[in-house]
Design a protein around this nucleic acid. Structure first.
Lengths: 251, 251
DNA sequence: GGCCTTTCGTGCGATATCTCAACAAATAAG
DNA sequence: CTTATTTGTTGAGATATCGCACGAAAGGCC
């Protein structure tokens, strides 16, 4: 850390928080040090500080994060106008269609769910605000990537090949870029079991009053329920109606 | 910050993140400095660091948080075994009863939703994992407070009077403490429109194998649907069955 | 138990950061 | 337009933190 105006301690502490995952909910000092690349002494100070502030618990051997950390994420969600504005519309849409619907935004190469109205369980994992999925194989991800300049879009896709989550997943960045170009022209994206077997999904972008893409909205359906073509016939019009409604609401 | 092993920079940075709320999504350096009690120069360094790390955006005048901050909260939720363990049970319970059911834990004087299975919309606000409600006027809050030592419970309630969210809300800490004592004896809590008009709810604690309370589970019903007494007759037994099931699963 | 390996806690010098104050730029007030 | 007031930025000395190295303590293994 040589730059002025950059606080190393803060960067290190945040990195420490991010070392905690579902696979490693309880970690010792040495584990955290190894994962974060920090010296053990430094990792220890970070962890003790987090514990002191109530963001972590310490039993003398292992550290765990406390619900207090959730406040940080909540603070962030709360600052977003999008979730609050879309939630009522999302609820209505989801109820009318009888299917699950979500709104997400782009963060790097991932989409982040910011609002969701679930009707029945179609995905194996529980999606919730803050949940992340890769952009390249999701309908909302395609729509959000399509809103970027070509060059930046390709940069975020990376060199590939991307992981095949199912046997239907497109993994070649070139092929995906092609689909994204088609998405841009069509104004919507259709995904057929690329993220999970048995799940189809259709998404459109959400624009603000200035025409900027500020998010994406989708409807997800069990593959057994509708064909891909039916998906478009049944759900594209309602999604576009919501898109038009929200355009005036979003600043 | 005089103590060894406490990193002031990290504490300050986290405090800076928490100054962002729905009411203040965009803040200048001076605003953040005022709210966090930091020197303007220090607040500036924190904010620039957050921006440098991608946790904040800076337009030269105002700072906003980015979705990246959500990763911190997600990291935390992901480390909790509770949500993943209860979600399937919750889904089944909710479907069987035809009503919404949730699991929450206590953080300070607030309950934090960690899992939820929604059937139909009964509450005006969308509840989701990470959402918070005050403990004193919710069924799960009463149950969780009842698990604390008397003294700590009263400390968390504070001196009062607490905000009356509806005309039914108990606001006197003494009265609430009485209800909590009753909750402790009964092993469940019933709430009748104290958090929102038209919403009734019943909750029981979740215990781990050692008998420690690790969370609470509830069922929420529109007031128009069932009387308070019917709530107990209809839903207490299924909740207790789930409680017994989970007792073995939770470590 | 004895030995080995790993982890933990702690000084210390080098370095980075904090606080304070001053200054410049922008904004508000008169 | 001029004068206050607030805000953003910079510098310097005083402090705090970092990373390293070392000794202590806790398993693991035979």
């Amino acid at each position: 850390m040589l730059e002025r105006d950059i606080m190393g301690g803060l960067a290190k502490g945040l990195a420490v928080i991010e070392t905690f995952t579902a696979a490693r909910p309880r970690q010792s000092i040495a584990e955290v040090a190894g994962l974060s690349g920090l010296d053990r002494a430094t990792a220890r100070r970070c962890l003790l500080t987090l514990a002191h502030l109530g963001y972590a618990d310490y039993d003398g051997k292992y550290f765990t994060l406390t619900p207090r950390v959730l406040r940080l994420g909540t603070a962030c969600l709360a600052t977003m106008p999008l979730p609050q504005l879309v939630q009522p519309v999302l609820d209505r849409l989801s109820e009318t269609l009888g299917e699950s619907s979500s709104v997400s935004i782009l963060d790097g190469a991932e989409i982040v769910y910011v609002a969701r109205a679930a009707q029945r369980k179609v995905m194996s994992i529980a999606l919730m605000p803050g949940s992340r999925l890769p952009a390249y194989c999701t309908s909302m991800g395609r729509v959000l990537l399509a809103a970027l300049p070509e060059e930046e879009m390709r940069e975020r896709l990376g060199p590939g090949p991307l992981p095949a989550r199912t046997r239907f997943t497109l993994t070649d960045p070139e092929a995906i870029a092609g689909e994204i170009a088609a998405t841009r022209r069509a104004g919507h994206a259709l995904i057929d079991q690329e993220v999970e077997i048995g799940l189809r999904s259709i998404a459109v972008p959400l624009h603000d009053a200035h025409g900027r893409t500020v998010g994406a909205i989708n409807v997800g359906v069990a593959a057994s329920q509708e064909s891909v073509l039916a998906l478009k016939d049944l759900y594209l019009a309602p999604l576009l109606a919501v898109q038009a409604d929200l355009r005036r609401v979003l600043r």
